[in-house]
């Protein structure tokens, strides 16, 4: 079976940073699996997702996504970019464009270069975009401009754009951090449902252990760039999360451990 993603002994430091963001990380994601990454702020969750999206350069180790090795020195080719869908924490939508145009932008990696630049999507592209809108429950918002939408609606547009890519691996960076608890559940339900319906694997990061345990098959605990645990969702215990989020406070040279 082809794995959705395999990271093998990868280390990475952001340019100019003293400490590495990822340190000897190894993780495998099976096809169709839903995996949640838990961890405190600065643990390296976004970095790990960007790595799989092919947007980082200069890492050490081996990474393969959907059966293809990534090159640490080069951007992946366009088709490969399109196979991996990324949902950004701050949505990263074009504010002044319509919802439909933003979702259609998800097709740009699938169109021939010239067709993409001239902005003439095929009927098939439009159909796929409309289906993505309908799946996200925002078909009626198609002609609205993104800058007139609420946070929850924007999140749905971002998900629809990702679905329009027809991705085989969906990476979502804290998809519910900007939403209230009810909408957070709605969005995660939607995300895991559409991923499952398309047979796509999904990897999402989160700050909320309860939601992660509810929607993921497996939980990966990331702390200071290292993997603390990788367990089935059912085995997520209070002790594990406490260990993951505990704070290290150092007072005048003495290192204390305070439970957060």
């Amino acid at each position: 079976m082809i794995l959705a993603a395999a990271i093998d002994d990868v280390s990475y430091a952001h340019p100019g940073a003293d400490l590495p963001s990822l340190e000897r990380v190894s993780i495998q994601i099976a096809a169709g699996e839903a995996v949640a990454i838990l961890g405190p702020s600065g643990a390296g969750k976004t970095t790990l997702l960007a790595l799989l999206d092919g947007r980082l350069r200069g890492w050490l180790g081996r990474v393969s996504v959907l059966g293809t090795q990534l090159d640490p020195d080069q951007r992946p080719p366009r088709e490969q970019c399109a196979d991996t869908g990324f949902i950004f924490q701050e949505f990263a939508l074009v504010e002044r464009s319509t919802v439909f145009r933003n979702v259609l932008n998800g097709r740009l990696g699938r169109m021939p270069c010239l067709r993409a630049a001239f902005g003439s999507p095929s009927t098939r592209d439009c159909e796929i975009a409309r289906t993505a809108l309908a799946d996200c429950g925002i078909a009626d918002l198609a002609d609205r401009r993104v800058d007139s939408l609420s946070g929850g609606q924007r999140q749905r547009v971002a998900i629809a754009r990702c679905l329009a890519q027809e991705p085989k691996l969906i990476l979502a960076d804290e998809p519910v951090s900007n939403l209230d608890p009810v909408r957070a559940v709605d969005i995660l339900t939607l995300l895991t449902k559409v991923a499952r319906a398309r047979g796509a694997a999904i990897l999402f990061s989160s700050h909320q252990p309860d939601l992660a345990g509810r929607f993921a098959d497996r939980i990966v605990g990331l702390r200071s760039g290292s993997i603390l645990f990788s367990i089935p969702a059912a085995q997520l215990s209070e002790d594990r999360t406490t260990a993951l989020y505990r704070q290290e406070v150092s007072v005048s040279g003495v290192s204390l451990r305070a439970v957060n």
Binding site: R55, S97, M111
Partner: peptide, 26 residues
Amino acid sequence: SRAPIEALESVGAGPLARLRFAIWPQ
């Protein structure tokens, strides 16, 4: 804003498509 440009890079859009659909509308 850089974010939408990065998003279209992630989608696999070429430089011209990024100029047209992420940079120009802004």
